[in-house]
Amino acid sequence: MTHRISLRPGDHHFEAADDQTVLEAALAAGLLLPHSCRDGACGACKGKVLEGEVDLKPHSVGALTDAERSEGYTLFCCARPLGDLVVQARNVSRADDIPVRKLPARVQRLQRLADDVMLIDLKLPASEPFQFRAGQYIDILLADGQRRSFSIANAPHDASHLELHVRRIDGGRFTAHVFETMKEKEILRFEGPLGSFWLREDSARPIVMVAGGTGFAPIKGIIEHALHAGLQRPVTLYWGARTRAGLYMDELARGWEAALPGFRYVPVLSDEPWDGRQGLVHQAVLDDFADLAQHEVYACGAPAMIDVARRSFCAERGLAEDAFFADAFTFAQPTN
């Protein structure tokens, strides 16, 4: 049985099967809703059910509170329609201009950026052009059907390869392979591009970027795209890490201040004393900006950081809900 879903803003309509989530059905119809983790952890796909009912599968309480549920909000990645729906999303765009594809890629370079961060440089097949927007991610397809998601850390004008920043996870099967046994020339298969995290170039608003750990990867891709495109908007980047080693491309980020007009870089450490900014990265933004009403924010990192940044920036600094763009990094649970 299928259900008709009407999407606001705009006059979009699509069909969803009983076993499809609202997000899955929208993507299948070529409509791109804000999303990131796709498993109820980050809250990026949060929207409102205006008419109808959904079956909401288990999710993080931080991504959707009981109070929000009582107000009609849901997570589109976890919500299956129980009938026809009218729903409201923060942003809606068409996704059919860049196709999602499955392709092979060859590992052409491995570089240890920190003790627990590895750069993987993937060479794409010359006969299979791959398009993406700066900030999107891919899924590495494992032999047993599992997937591992990684943001693309380079800009699309240099599309002969993909740069990934992989953090080692205790008990992580794929990341253990990356750090212990992966070799150059190994072939990986991936699907992409995925996600709705990219620079909105039709806006003139000043930009605040917030990265936590390897959340720097998609931010790097966006900034390199901005450099290539000659972006004139003011950009402030806050990069948070526990220790100085976590700022694994600090020199590169500092170099952007000279290369991109109006760019400012603010590194923030939470666990190591130093002569720079200390504390939580979202708090550094709150300390520096009394008003974010005229800004756009692009945030990438752990779901808890994304959640507190969204809530505090919107509630305490006047940031518009539809001016907060996020990509939350979640990790697959270790398997035996």
Results as ranks from 00 to 15, higher is better:
Arg69Val: 12
Gly212His: 03
Pro129Ala: 14
Thr2Cys: 09
Leu103Gln: 13
Phe130Arg: 03
Ala28Cys: 12
Gly62Glu: 04
Phe325Gln: 06
Ala44Cys: 13
Pro303Leu: 05
Asp96Phe: 12
Ala143Pro: 07
Ala290Leu: 13
Ala95Met: 09
Ser70Val: 06
Glu51Ala: 12
Asp116Phe: 01
Thr21Lys: 02
His282Lys: 00
Ala226His: 00
Asp322Gly: 03
Gly318Glu: 07
Phe197Gln: 06
Ala304Ile: 15
Ala259His: 08
Asp271Val: 04
Arg254Cys: 08
Asp158His: 15
Val86Ile: 14
Ser203Met: 08
Asp96Lys: 12
Asn336Cys: 05
Tyr73Thr: 01
Glu51Leu: 11
Ala217Glu: 02
Ala299Leu: 08
Gly192Arg: 02
Val208Thr: 07
Asp39Arg: 09
Leu110Ile: 12
Arg38Gln: 13
Ala79Asn: 03
Asn91Met: 10
Ala253Asn: 02
His3Glu: 03
Val178Met: 05
Tyr238Lys: 11
Ile5Gln: 11
Gly240Arg: 10
Ala41Asp: 06
Asp55Leu: 14
Ala16Met: 13
Ser36Lys: 02
Pro81Thr: 08
Gly246Leu: 08
Asp11Ala: 14
Arg90Trp: 04
Gly10Ser: 03
Ile207Tyr: 05
Ala204Glu: 08
Ile187Lys: 07
Ala105Thr: 01
Pro267Val: 14
Ser36Asp: 04
Met118Cys: 05
Ala217Asp: 03
Ile169Gln: 07
His228Gln: 10
Pro267Thr: 15
Ile98Cys: 10
Asp170Thr: 01
Arg147Leu: 13
Val100Gln: 10
Arg317Ile: 09
Asp170Met: 02
Arg254Ile: 05
Pro125His: 12
Thr21Leu: 03
Pro156Trp: 09
Ser270Cys: 11
Ala259Phe: 07
Pro234His: 10
Gly52Arg: 06
Pro193His: 04
Gly240Asn: 11
Ala211Lys: 04
Ser6Pro: 00
Val100Tyr: 01
Ala63Arg: 02
Gly279Met: 14
Gly192Gln: 01
Phe263Cys: 07
Arg101Asn: 09
Phe174Ile: 00
Ile138Leu: 04
Tyr137Phe: 15
Val86Lys: 08
Met305Val: 05
Pro267Gln: 15
Arg4Phe: 09
Ile207Arg: 07
Glu296Met: 14
Arg244Glu: 08
Pro261Asn: 06
Ile306Gly: 05
Asp55Ile: 07
Val235Gly: 00
Phe190Arg: 00
Ala293Ser: 15
Asp84Tyr: 11
Thr243Ile: 10
Leu194Lys: 06
Arg244Gln: 11
Thr2Gln: 11
Glu68Phe: 09
Cys77Gln: 11
Ile120Val: 11
Gln88Glu: 15
Asp55Arg: 14
Asp322Met: 03
Thr175Gln: 04
Gln20Val: 00
Arg148Gly: 00
Ile223Thr: 01
Leu64Cys: 01
Leu119Tyr: 01
Gly279Trp: 13
Leu27Arg: 13
Thr243Gly: 08
Phe130Gly: 01
Arg244Ser: 06
Thr21Met: 03
Leu141Gly: 00
Pro81Tyr: 10
Leu103Arg: 12
Leu31Thr: 00
Cys42Ser: 05
Phe331His: 06
Leu292Arg: 06
Gln136His: 03
Asn154Thr: 09
Met118Tyr: 02
Phe179Pro: 12
Tyr238Ser: 09
Ala293Lys: 15
Ala245His: 10
Val86Cys: 09
Arg101Phe: 01
Ala114His: 05
Pro125Lys: 13
Ala290Ser: 15
Gln131Arg: 15
Thr330Gly: 01
Trp198Arg: 13
Glu186His: 14
Leu269Val: 13
Pro193Met: 10
Asp291Phe: 06
